[in-house]
Design a binder for these strands. Structure first.
Length: 579
RNA sequence: GGAGGCGUGGUGUAGUCGGCCUAACACGCAUGCCUGUCACGCAUGAGAUCACGGGUUCGAAUCCCGUCGCCUCCGCCA
């Protein structure tokens, strides 16, 4: 006898009168004394089993409890008139069992899968296998599977090779903290888990693989967020002999493909903004295009106003709040919001049918206020919130106000608002290390026109780096790579790495590039984030089967954990006493 | 590293600004009744050192101090 001949949701009216066997978990048991209903759940849905005391399987069915695993063989019967349940796929029929086999008993679970959404997440993580029984989570993993299936088809069709790269690699400087793995065979040395397969995929390009992709697990030892886990999955891609335009267009096609295959959604062409434009228009390198119109740059106009403080501000940026009449208290809250983020304050200008009101009315005359309002395309009923300050602060704070306003007022437009952000700065200043560091990674190609600035004005050098942003969340990041050793050495030298450090840390890459490196570039998408957004989920934990808590622990396995001192001895490791 | 929120039977909550709290309600669980339910219904019952430690007090779930855990955000995340 087989455990199952049909899935629960496939038992429909067309099978009326036939014998079927279904298997699954007992979702609910309704005991009417003389009549027992049991809903059996499998991955596809639920089916109702009904038995009366004369029936063969009544005694067994009487003993089943929530989450028992059963196999039920019986006749499919149409439900009586008026007893149809249209909420479930099998709702027109029910099974009259001739045999019920209890395959597994269950203790009373700490929570029922169907009520899990309201249960404390710590409890759910501890009993993750029960949490995963609920259909909404299951659907996320079905979506994830469709995305991966679509991805692999796409890459295969376009001549990409799926190549695995090592998980035990070498610690490299720059970037996130590495997770370290001590070597037993080489005492005192450590592997690092990859933050990305970056160097390996570039070596594959040197090897002539031409087109590589990998669904790669990567690791970063940094603090967690709702959209950040210490281990996550990247769609890692690298291509040779393709210019930036070809790479962007192929990757955009890939994203469109998975949305079409997995969600049935046809995406529009992604708009493009340079990093500079994104900062000026949205105060962010990952603009949320759902949050209304761009910021308005009032810097040049402010130069000529009579109020010295505004006229001398290096940058003046406005957020247009359409049809918004904030109270005094709300305006104070916006001012506080701006101050908390480092701005010196906030000016507001309100336009109505009978004139202009402003917090700056004391220092600016009516004409000046009207000019500002007109320049910001203010209509009666609109409010303009203005931040002044240095760049990028003024733009960033204004951008955060734009976002927060849209969230608070429920003005986020629905839809999938993708864009490319390009030409990021090649370097950024690290306050902590007091030196220039790579904004992306040290193998990023500078924009050709900016080569000459590398030594004279490195902060102004733009890079051939690009991000994919969806609804204000960074989904992917990539770049064209440097493939000429001389240019790579120039970059290392601007970063202040000595010859010794270069050869010690990146010698193998420099060496490889001396044997014929093709022009190449690539990108890496955060698979978990894509699936999270596609699923409408609020946290990566809803699309990762066994996620970590915000403190990086796994309540199910109770990891991380101390290890036996003998294990440490073998590794030559001695723990410092706790301070 | 910093800020905020939360922690009360198995689960979700109420109670928290000092006193009939001998901790309430719903779900779940157990037992009994019930032949058309699908969040079945009805009745009875079991189940809580109120996260942990210390303090104040005649008296603490409640006030104070500390610790731990979970969540969110800032820093951090090339």
């Amino acid at each position: 006898m087989s455990f199952r001949t049909e899935w629960a949701s496939q038992v429909t009216a067309t099978l009326t009168g036939t014998m079927v066997t279904i298997a699954g978990w007992v979702q609910r048991r309704r005991d009417h004394g003389g009549l027992i209903f049991v809903d059996v759940r499998d991955r596809t849905g639920i089916i109702q089993v009904v038995a009366d005391p004369k029936g063969a399987a009544f005694a067994t069915l009487d003993t089943v409890r929530a989450e028992y695993v059963v196999s039920v063989t019986g006749m499919v019967r149409r439900r009586p008139d008026g007893m149809v349940n249209l909420d479930i796929a099998s709702g027109e029929v029910e099974i009259v069992p001739s045999q019920v086999v209890i395959l597994s008993q269950s203790k009373t679970p700490p929570f029922m899968p169907q009520e899990a959404e309201t249960v404390d997440e710590l409890v759910r993580l501890k009993y993750r296998y029960l949490d995963l029984r609920r259909s909404s989570l299951l659907h996320n993993f079905e979506l994830r599977d469709r995305v991966l299936y679509s991805l692999r088809n796409f890459f295969h069709e376009h001549g990409f090779l799926d190549v695995e790269t090592p998980a035990l690699a070498r610690s490299t400087p720059e970037g996130a903290r590495d997770f370290l793995v001590p070597s037993r065979v080489q005492p005192g040395t450590f592997y690092a888990l990859p933050q990305s397969p970056q160097i390996f995929k570039q070596l594959l390009m040197v090897a002539g693989f031409e087109r590589y992709y990998q669904i790669a697990k990567v690791f970063r030892d940094e603090d967690l967020r709702a959209d950040r886990q210490p281990e996550f999955t990247q769609i890692d891609v690298e291509m040779s002999f393709m210019d930036r335009e070809e790479i962007l267009s192929l990757m955009e096609e890939m994203v469109k493909r998975i949305f079409k295959d997995a969600l049935g959604v046809a995406l529009q062409t992604f708009p493009r903004l340079s990093w500079e434009e994104a900062l000026h228009q949205y105060g962010s390198d990952k603009p949320d295009l759902r949050a209304g119109e761009p910021l308005v740059d009032l810097t040049s106009q402010a130069r000529s106003v009579s109020w010295e403080i505004l006229a001398s501000a290096p940058h003046v940026v406005g957020v247009i709040c359409r049809q918004y009449r904030p109270s005094r208290k709300m305006l104070e809250q916006w001012t506080e919001f701006a101050r908390e983020r480092g701005a010196s304050g906030l000016i507001w200008i309100m336009k109505s049918e009978d004139g202009i009101k402003s917090s700056a009315a004391k220092w600016l005359d009516g004409e000046e206020l009207l000019a500002l309002a007109t320049n910001a395309r203010l209509q009666p009923g609109d409010t303009l919130l203005v931040v002044a300050g240095p760049k990028p602060l003024a733009y960033v704070v204004a951008g955060q106000i734009r976002l927060e306003f849209a969230r608070q007022e429920n003005r986020l437009e629905p839809g999938w608002r993708f864009l490319w952000v390009t030409e990021f700065p090649l370097f950024e200043w690290s306050e902590e290390e007091e030196r220039l560091v790579s904004a992306h990674h040290p193998f990023t190609m500078p924009v050709a026109q900016d080569f000459e600035l590398l030594e004279s004005n490195p902060a102004a050098v733009r890079s051939e780096a690009y991000d994919v942003v969806l609804n204000g969340i960074e989904l992917a990041s990539g770049s064209l790579r440097i493939y000429r050793p001389d240019l790579q050495e120039r970059i290392f030298s601007v970063l202040g790495l000595t010859q010794d450090e270069i050869s010690e840390k990146f010698g193998f890459l420099i060496q490889a590039f001396q044997y014929g490196a093709p022009p190449h570039g690539g990108i890496a998408f955060g698979l978990d984030r894509i699936v999270m957004l596609m699923a409408g989920a609020k946290s990566l934990r809803e699309v990762i089967a066994f996620p970590k808590t915000a403190r990086g622990t796994d309540p199910l396995m109770d990891a991380p954990s101390p290890v036996d001192v003998r294990q440490l001895d073998e590794l030559g490791i001695q723990l410092k006493p706790k301070t």
